[in-house]
């Protein structure tokens, strides 16, 4: 039982990480209807840029700010060069464009900073929380807890931002109906730039935490792909969906790997989330929090 809880908790906490990445997808999808496949590449690029600045001798806060600045610039350039010329194209075209963007971002990041694997140090150790270990015998990593805390903080901040700022309201209006938002004078392009910048920030935070855990390497982009089944499960437009979806995917994936993996040769976490999300979709195509869609003809 203890072992089960340990695995479950570990899964839930790594699920939080998936939620992180999924959050970036949801933000951009809500505001612009773009399914941004490049979110994973942005996570990788953000982490690599941060490490790169640190290696150049910048202290932690400066490197963080500089990396954030780079992500903002990336967002603005993307809006200008990719999104604006493709406005009013079918969503699937934009989706394919972001696959192209993925390659560009990966190539640029590795071209500038080099492709070798780096460590990333946030100063938090990956050891079990002592008092919890002592009292219940369940090992939970301090680092994972820290990550979950940051996630909770970030989600709260975003929720406040959306709810109470002028930009947040404009953003929700755009998400609801582009045309209507435009017609009451909301500057769509500015909104998109802001959203991409915010998504860049989310990618940076995700990149730092993932990077500190597993090292900063190209494989980060694959980890980020795990956010896709999370999205299928939670729906593309729902922030709570991203969080809950992440938790479900994270925990079931770990449980499946531990309890089923040994019978089938292990490594099933590469596909298990997808198959689970698919099975779920067959039962409920609109996702956990999505609304049922009626085709009008």
């Amino acid at each position: 039982m203890q072992f089960f809880i340990e695995v479950l908790l570990g899964g839930l906490l790594s699920g939080v990480m998936y939620s992180f990445v999924a959050l970036g997808f949801v933000l951009i999808y809500k505001a612009s209807g773009v399914f941004n496949f490049a979110q994973g590449a942005m996570v990788f690029a953000a982490a690599l840029t941060f490490v790169g600045f640190q290696e150049m001798g910048l202290p932690f806060p400066a490197a963080l700010l500089a990396a954030f600045a780079v992500m903002v610039v990336l967002g603005i350039v993307t809006e200008r060069v990719v999104l604006r010329p493709l406005v009013n194209q079918p969503p699937i075209t934009l989706f394919m464009a972001t696959i192209g963007l993925t390659y560009v971002i990966e190539g640029l990041a590795q071209g500038v900073w080099g492709a070798n694997v780096r460590g990333l140090e946030l100063g938090i150790e990956d050891v079990p929380v002592q008092w919890l270990m002592d009292s219940t015998g369940i090992g939970v990593s301090t680092f994972d807890l820290f990550g979950a805390g940051v996630a909770a903080l970030l989600v709260t901040l975003l929720a406040l931002f959306f709810q109470y700022t002028r930009i947040g309201r404009a953003l929700r209006a755009v998400a609801d109906d582009h045309q209507a938002a435009l017609s009451i004078g909301i500057p769509l392009q500015t909104i998109w730039r802001i959203v991409w910048a915010v998504a860049g920030f989310v990618a940076l935070v995700a990149g730092l935490i993932w990077g500190a855990r597993n090292g900063v390497s190209f494989s980060l982009t694959f980890t980020a792909l795990k956010a896709l089944p999370v999205l299928i499960l939670g729906g593309f437009t729902s922030i709570p969906g991203a969080i809950v979806g992440g938790l479900i995917i994270g925990s079931t994936e770990k449980l499946a790997e531990v309890y089923l993996g040994e019978y089938v040769g292990g490594g099933i976490d590469s596909w298990f989330p997808y198959v689970m999300a698919l099975a779920f979709l067959l039962v409920r195509p609109e996702g956990l929090f999505g609304e049922k869609h009626i085709d009008r003809v």
């Binding site: 060069v81 075209t93 394919m96 192209g100 993925t102 390659y103 990966e106 190539g107 071209g111």
Partner: peptide
């Protein structure tokens, strides 16, 4: 020399975006 493979990524990705914009 390491840039060559990354250059390939950038050119591939850039061309995809270019084609989608200019001649879908």
């Amino acid at each position: 020399p390491s840039v060559s493979s990354n250059l390939q990524l950038i050119v591939f990705g850039g061309l995809i975006i270019f084609f989608l914009i200019v001649e879908p």
